[in-house]
Design a binder for these strands. Structure first.
Lengths: 245, 245
DNA sequence: CGGATATTTGAGATGGTTCAAGACGAGTGG
DNA sequence: CCACTCGTCTTGAACCATCTCAAATATCCG
């Protein structure tokens, strides 16, 4: 479950103003355990014992679930400043993989320590609650498109979602951003084959809704039509899936 | 987001032993505001202001999201003893519908009061965290099947999930249980048309994996094959999606 | 420049949808 | 007790979206 905030691109900076003491405690814990992770490394394998709580300082990670025969679904991405808690229920085994999509920097916090932090800092727990609600909204929204939407809607929705998460600026015309993903990973995110992601992206490009260059550099050309294809209200989407500070 | 427990079929009974004071506070709040709800009534409409937190005392409810043109996806069910919090982020507007699938009894708790309860009772918050993790696991598992599984896998998985949630007993041969759903609702749950739910259910019946009678009375005939079709390990599934007490 | 990794494009197979008609079952009123 | 009705489920047939396989580019990295 993805828990904490990402407004700036640097993990802890978010916390410094509103939540000084929680931030301090968190920072101490993170400094002690932070480590660098190479691209494509698995930080957590499903069916292996949970290692605790992962706090992302830099990089993009993916939470993925797989069927017994290798079909993969990406459940959510974890961005800098956010937390992934694979065993919230104090479970023994993780049920998900956690994969570094870019070179990353991650702190691993033990369950016990994390519980202690939450208990001692109510504002941390409170923020956690908001983050969890946002993360739940994200997955619920995606479930709707994956279950009921056509390929265009799924992809357009994913682009809106990721545009909002990747940067502070909303989904507005001319906004450019980069996603550190391949089309295959995007497909695993929205339940499409990479081939069909390619075709659908081509269609969105041809209709001048987005522009892309050099592997996943996006520019929003027509936010209104993008929102229409995604069947979503952009303002609503933002308040739903991006936790407020 | 679905939050609390359901082991017995009566809302508050779960709380009495381990969490006496939290249970007492909760009970007082619920007694004051509980109300009966008719089948098929909407307790919460998306795009309407959030009413607060819903605590279910009796009945099955469904959390649903819809596209602008009426395509519906059921995100999760809410069972007795569980809580639905439509605006966890203290948001103004709900983004989901909440529908009573059976005649139900529900208490509505204001956001402020709920926040207060959580702050005053750490064990309540702690249990909430576990419930949220379980509810997240449920939706993530379903997202995997909906995104990547064929109709058989989606339905078989849903049957496992709902069997586990509907009763204390696991998914075992001979276990009988009732689901207060139509095939159409089941379809909205797993992203299939009601027609295809019917066909797929027929296949599962023909292969002697489940037996059904009079509208959604299920009997598990072959739990192993059901699990195989659902591509799931039944023990793992239980610890993932059913919060431990 | 060369090799690996990603993307594009085509063509055929497939699984699920939609529409439409019929069967079944539970509840209702005569 | 029967006949009607409404909601639900079943079944068939045609259609369409997406997948898979396969080959042809394009892009990145050393």
């Amino acid at each position: 479950m993805v828990l904490l905030a990402c407004t700036s691109n640097h993990g802890l900076s978010f916390w410094t103003d509103a939540h000084r003491d929680a931030a301090g405690a968190l920072r101490r814990v993170c400094d002690a355990t932070a480590q660098d992770v190479a691209r494509n490394r698995f930080l957590q394998l499903s069916s292996e014992p949970t290692q605790g709580v992962f706090f992302v300082l830099e990089g993009w990670l993916a939470i993925a679930k797989s069927t017994t025969f290798g079909q993969r679904q990406i459940v959510d991405f974890v961005l800098p400043g956010e937390v992934f808690d694979s065993g919230s229920g104090t479970r023994q085994r993780s049920s998900t993989d956690l994969i570094a999509l870019t070179p990353s920097r991650v702190a691993i916090i033990s369950q016990a320590r994390w519980q202690g932090l939450l208990r001692d800092h109510w504002d941390l727990q409170e923020m956690l609650n908001r983050r969890m609600a946002a993360s739940y909204s994200r997955i619920a929204g995606r479930l709707l498109r994956v279950g009921r939407g056509c390929a265009d809607a799924r992809l357009a929705y994913a682009i809106c979602e990721l545009c909002l998460r990747a940067t502070d600026r909303g989904v507005v015309d001319g906004h450019a951003f980069h996603l550190p993903l391949t089309q295959e990973i995007l497909g695993d995110f929205v339940g499409l084959s990479s081939v069909h992601v390619s075709r659908t992206l081509t269609r969105l490009r041809r209709e001048k809704i987005v522009r892309t260059s050099k592997h996943m550099d996006f520019v929003i050309k027509n936010a209104d039509r993008l929102a229409a294809v995604a069947e979503v209200d952009l303002d609503d989407l933002r308040t739903e899936i991006i936790p407020r500070a």
